Amino acid sequence: MGGTLECFSNFLGSGRRHKKRKQFQTVELKVRMDCEGCELKVRNALSTMRGVQSVDINRKQYKVTVTGYVEPHKVIKRVQSTGKKAELWPYVPYNLVAHPYVAPTYDKKAPPGYVRNMEVIAVSSQVVRPEDQLTSLFSDDNPNACSIM
């Protein structure tokens, strides 16, 4: 019975609801910035955001790193409110990818030493690797699979 009374007193007594606490995380974004004014605009917008501990901007790579108790979609919205196009950082170091020079992963716009993240590409579309095309070309199950006419 004590549990029921406690539940009702919590429900009626306090008008506040408990918010889910945000986790400390690092959000990396790709934001195109050409001048110091653009960089300053993005830095000011992010540093005034609640929960942000630090903002690190590498203008040469178009990379913005935000650490703190923030949610990624809210950080993107805040950057977009400055008029800049923002997306989650799509690159990983090339030594973490099995085939870094396959067509969907290799990107000329990537910073030196980085390629596109294959997991992001695999989620957005079906990835066809060159090895898969060759194995379907020569098949023991279908003797007519590789016939030249």
Rank of each mutant, 00 (worst) to 15 (best):
P130L: 11
L96M: 06
S54W: 03
K108V: 07
N58H: 07
Y69D: 15
P90Q: 06
A122I: 07
S54N: 10
D56W: 05
A122C: 05
P112I: 08
P111R: 02
Q80G: 12
S125L: 12
V70D: 06
L40A: 11
C35P: 01
G68K: 06
G83F: 09
Y114G: 02
V70G: 08
V52W: 09
V55R: 00
C35M: 02
V120G: 12
A98S: 09
V128H: 07
T65D: 03
T105W: 10
Q25F: 09
P90T: 05
R32G: 12
P111I: 03
P90H: 12
D34Q: 13
V123E: 14
A110R: 01
E39D: 04
V70N: 07
L46R: 00
I57A: 02
Y69S: 12
K85P: 07
P93N: 08
R50P: 10
E87Q: 08
P104V: 06
K63A: 03
N95Q: 13
C38R: 00
T65W: 04
L46M: 03
E71I: 05
R32Y: 14
K60H: 11
G37Q: 10
P130F: 13
I121T: 13
T26Q: 13
L29G: 05
V127F: 04
V115A: 01
L96I: 08
R129E: 15
E39G: 01
K30M: 11
N117F: 04
P130V: 12
L88A: 09
C38W: 05
Y101P: 06
E36G: 08
V92H: 00
V52L: 08
G37R: 08
G113L: 04
M33F: 01
V75L: 00
V42E: 02
I121S: 13
K77S: 10
S125T: 14
R32S: 12
K74T: 09
P111Y: 05
G68Q: 10
S125N: 14
P104S: 08
V66E: 04
R21Q: 14
C38H: 02
